[in-house]
Simulated scan of single mutants.
Amino acid sequence: MKLTRQQFDEIGKFYLDGFVINSSDQDLMFKVFNCLPKHERMLAIEWGFNDTVFRDNVFEFLCKNQLNMSVDEYYKSDIFKKYLNNREFITIDFSKL
Score class of each variant (00 low, 15 high):
Met69Thr: 07
Leu84Thr: 05
Gly12Trp: 07
Ser70Gly: 00
Phe30Met: 06
Asp25Thr: 02
Val71Asn: 02
Arg41Val: 14
Ile45Asp: 07
Thr91Cys: 07
Tyr75Phe: 15
Ile90Trp: 06
Leu43Asn: 12
Asn50Gln: 15
Asn86Gly: 13
Phe14Pro: 02
Asp9Met: 13
Phe8Met: 14
Ser95Val: 00
Cys35His: 14
Tyr74Cys: 00
Lys82Val: 01
Phe89Met: 14
Phe89Val: 08
Leu28Pro: 05
Glu10Arg: 13
Asn50Arg: 15
Val20Asp: 05
Thr4Cys: 12
Lys13His: 03
Asn86Gln: 12
Glu88Arg: 09
Leu16Gly: 11
Met42Asp: 13
Trp47Ala: 15
Gln26Lys: 06
Tyr74Val: 00
Tyr15Trp: 11
Thr91Met: 11
Gln7Pro: 04
Asn22Tyr: 04
Ser24Tyr: 01
Asp72Met: 03
Asp93Cys: 06
Asp78Ile: 02
Phe19Cys: 05
Pro37Gly: 07
Phe89Ile: 10
Ile11Asp: 10
Asn65Pro: 03
Phe54Cys: 09
Tyr83Cys: 03
Leu84Gly: 08
Arg41Asn: 15
Leu16Tyr: 09
Arg87Met: 10
Lys64Ile: 02
Val58Tyr: 02
Thr91His: 09
Leu16Met: 09
Ser23Lys: 04
Asp56Ala: 15
Thr4Pro: 10
Leu67Gln: 10
Asp9Val: 08
Arg41Phe: 13
Gln6Val: 14
Cys63Leu: 09
Phe19Ala: 05
Ala44Ile: 13
Glu46Ser: 13
Phe94Cys: 01
Phe59Thr: 14
Ile92Ala: 10
Lys82Arg: 15
Ile11Val: 12
Asn57Ile: 07
Leu16Asn: 09
Ser70Phe: 03
Asp78Trp: 02
Glu10Leu: 12
Ile79Met: 09
Glu60Arg: 12
Phe14Leu: 08
Gln7Glu: 15
Cys35Val: 01
Ile45Arg: 15
Asn34Gln: 13
Leu67Lys: 08
Asn22Lys: 10
Pro37Asn: 13
Glu88Met: 09
Tyr75Arg: 14
Asn65Cys: 15
Lys2Gly: 02
Lys96His: 00
Leu43Pro: 03
Thr4Arg: 13
Glu60Trp: 02
Glu60Cys: 13
Phe61Pro: 01
Phe14Ser: 03
Ser24Gly: 00
Val32Arg: 12
Phe30Thr: 02
Asn57Gln: 12
Trp47Gly: 07
Phe80Trp: 08
Leu62Lys: 07
Gln6Leu: 15
Asp27Phe: 03
Gly48Pro: 06
Met42Leu: 11
Met29Ala: 03
Val53Ser: 09
Leu36Ala: 01
Gln26Cys: 00
Gln26Tyr: 00
Met69Ile: 09
Lys81Val: 06
Asn22Ala: 07
Asp78Val: 03
Asn86Glu: 10
Asn34Asp: 04
Val71Ile: 12
Phe61Tyr: 15
Ile79Asn: 08
Ser95His: 04
Val20Arg: 04
Met1Ala: 08
Gly18Ala: 05
Asp27Glu: 08
Gln7Ile: 06
Leu84Phe: 00
Phe89Arg: 08
Asp78Tyr: 03
Leu62Trp: 06
Leu84Trp: 03
Tyr15Gln: 11
Arg87Glu: 12
Gly12Leu: 11
Phe54Met: 11
Gly12Pro: 04
Gly48Thr: 08
Leu3Ala: 14
